[in-house]
């Protein structure tokens, strides 16, 4: 039951990230000038009939965020009361702390008129919180608790590779978030060329950030390919690794296409927003692979109370 609830929290967080990306894509971040109130109303009593224009995106994002926050309180309490793993209890509390901090960052960025540093931090913490919910769901899964089938087969190189890939993807997300919040999404307006060249023939800070995100996409893709190929070659018999290794190839392919179309469509709202969400899915899939590669290092969880229910 708790595992199912964890998956519900993960799904809700995906929806929250989508809502947040719509706020940025539609440039609606300041359509509600006050926080935590909404045009002076208590957030939860703001009339739905007044959710017009940019308010629909910004206030909708706040409502979804509040719901996810409440769900995280329940999650943390549930873990605390029912799970025997002490570290996981505190991990649930940490997730709650992350969503609270995330809400504060969201409020601050509105009150201070979207400073790029705060908005980027808001995006960065969103991904961390999403990773935490995915990790909790994984830790609660029957497969994790059973230790998977080949738990005894530790592979140091696999752990290094999957960890490095996850770090690369998070770094790439940070660059993307920075690019998004400094308004550099179209600093290089063509694709696949850059001002008609392989490398831009002129530079500015915005062009450099945009270029770094494209270069990061290349490095991230190569990292993912290396990880997936390694798993297919060395651990094809471990479905807990082989399946996400295949999934992430499709996800990164979709992500590259969404990124390209974002530029070519001049930042179409839907494409741009799905690019953010797909990026989060790529990151968390890599995280799942990495955590599963590290499973052997975790204590045997078979004796955990009531989690497989």
């Amino acid at each position: 039951m708790l595992h199912k609830y964890c998956r519900l929290v993960v799904a809700s967080t995906v929806l929250l990230i989508l809502a947040g990306s719509f706020v940025t894509s539609t440039d609606s971040g300041l359509s509600v000038p006050d926080w935590p109130t909404t045009y002076g109303w208590n957030m939860f009593t703001f009339p739905p009939s007044k959710m017009v224009g940019g308010i629909f995106y910004e206030h909708g994002h706040r409502l979804i965020a509040s719901t996810v926050g409440l769900m995280t309180i329940v999650l943390a309490a549930w873990l605390w009361m029912t799970d025997s793993r002490r570290w996981l209890k505190w991990f649930g509390v940490a997730a709650l702390g992350a969503i609270v901090a995330q809400g504060l960052l969201g409020g601050l960025t509105v009150l201070f008129l979207l400073p790029p540093a705060v908005s980027t931090a808001h995006a960065a913490l969103a991904e961390i919180f999403f990773c935490m919910t995915v990790a909790i769901a994984l830790f609660m899964s029957p497969g994790w608790i059973d230790g998977y089938t080949a738990v005894g087969a530790d592979d140091v190189r696999l752990r290094q590779l999957t960890t490095a890939t996850t770090v690369v993807l998070y770094t790439q997300m940070l660059i993307g978030a920075t690019m998004r919040h400094v308004g550099a999404g179209l600093a290089i307006p063509d694709f696949p060329w850059m001002f008609g060249h392989v490398v831009p023939d002129h530079w500015s800070p915005a062009i450099a950030i945009h270029f770094a995100h494209r270069l990061g996409a290349l490095i991230a893709t190569l990292s993912i390919l290396a990880t997936s190929i390694y798993i297919w070659m060395r651990h094809a018999d471990r479905p807990e690794l082989a399946r996400p290794a295949t999934l992430i190839i499709f996800l990164v392919g979709a992500q590259l296409m969404l990124g390209a179309i974002t530029v070519l469509s001049r930042r179409d709202i839907w494409i741009n927003s799905f690019h953010v969400v797909c990026g989060a899915l790529v990151l968390t899939t890599a995280l799942v692979i990495a955590l599963r590669s590290w499973r052997v290092k975790f204590a045997n969880a078979a004796s955990v109370v009531g989690i497989a229910a």
Binding site: L104, L105, G107, L108, L111, F112, P115, P116, A117, V118, T120, A121, T178, H181, V182, A184, P205, A206, I209
Partner: peptide, 18 residues
């Protein structure tokens, strides 16, 4: 863009100042 690099620490400072 410059503001973006002014620092992640600015977020904490802003939190206090708000």
């Amino acid at each position: 863009l410059r503001n973006a690099w002014v620092g992640w620490t600015a977020a904490a400072a802003l939190a206090a100042s708000v």
